[in-house]
C-alpha cells in the first residue's frame, strides 16, 4: 500500500504523466462516486467482505449480493458529518493492520468463523479516550457503523422487501387488541 501511495504521489508530482502503467494501481484508485470519502477500490472490496461476514449468504442471499457495500458508502458519503466520515475512513484504513495484529494473519487469509470473531471483537471494543487507543476507537466506530448500515441496507433492500418479507404500502385496518399468539409468522431461515 505504501508503495502504491508513493507511486501515486510521484505521479502527481510529475504532473500526472502516465509514466506508470495504469493497471499497476488501478485497483486502488480512489472511487469518484463517493466524493467526500477517500475510498479505494480495494477498500470497497474489503468493506464488501466485512458486510458479507455480518450478514452472510445462506439459504437466502447475503449482504454482498444485495450490493449493501454500495449502500453503506452512499450513506457515509451523503448522510454523515465530516468528523464521522473521517472516523469511518480511518477505521476502514486501519482495519487490515488491526486484523493482522489481532488474528495473526491477513484478513483475507482468515476462515469465515475467524472473520466473524474478529469483527464481533472489534464491535465490542471498549477503547479508552486516550491517544494510544485512538485507532481502536476508529475501528470500533467503523465496525459498528458498518454493522448498522449493513442491517439497514439488507432489510430495506428490494430483495427482502419483495421476495422474503413483502412490504405493503397499505398495512390494513387497525386492530387494537390483536392476540400475539395469532400474529406468529412461520420461521424464515437465513
Amino acid at each position: 500500500m505504501n508503495r502504491r501511495i508513493a507511486l501515486r504521489h510521484l505521479a502527481l508530482i510529475s504532473g500526472g504523466l502516465a509514466l506508470i502503467p495504469s493497471c499497476d494501481f488501478s485497483s486502488d484508485d480512489i472511487l469518484a462516486a463517493y466524493e467526500n470519502l477517500k475510498v479505494t477500490a480495494s477498500q470497497k472490496q474489503l468493506l464488501g467482505d466485512i458486510s458479507n461476514t455480518i450478514i452472510p449468504a445462506g439459504e437466502l442471499k447475503g449482504a454482498l449480493e444485495l450490493e449493501v457495500p454500495d449502500f453503506i458508502l452512499v450513506m457515509v458519503n451523503d448522510c454523515m458529518t465530516s468528523e464521522n466520515q473521517m472516523l469511518f475512513s480511518s477505521g476502514l484504513a486501519a482495519f487490515p493492520d488491526y486484523a493482522k495484529n489481532k488474528a495473526g494473519k491477513k484478513y483475507d487469509k482468515l476462515t469465515a468463523k475467524e472473520k466473524e470473531d474478529l469483527i464481533q471483537a472489534g464491535i465490542d471494543l471498549k477503547p479508552a479516550e486516550t491517544p494510544e487507543e485512538e485507532k481502536d476507537r476508529a475501528i470500533m466506530y467503523f465496525l459498528n457503523t458498518t454493522k448498522r448500515l449493513t442491517m439497514q441496507g439488507y432489510m430495506a433492500s428490494e430483495y427482502i422487501q419483495t421476495e422474503i418479507i413483502p412490504y405493503s404500502l397499505i398495512p390494513g385496518p387497525y386492530n387494537g387488541a390483536a392476540l400475539i399468539s395469532e400474529t406468529q409468522k412461520p420461521r424464515i431461515n437465513g
Partner: peptide
C-alpha cells in the same frame, strides 16, 4: 454477527 444476526433480523421476536 453472522447467521445469528441474520436469522434474528428475519424473525422479529414477538
Amino acid at each position: 454477527v453472522g447467521m445469528d444476526l441474520k436469522n434474528n433480523m428475519l424473525n422479529p421476536t414477538p
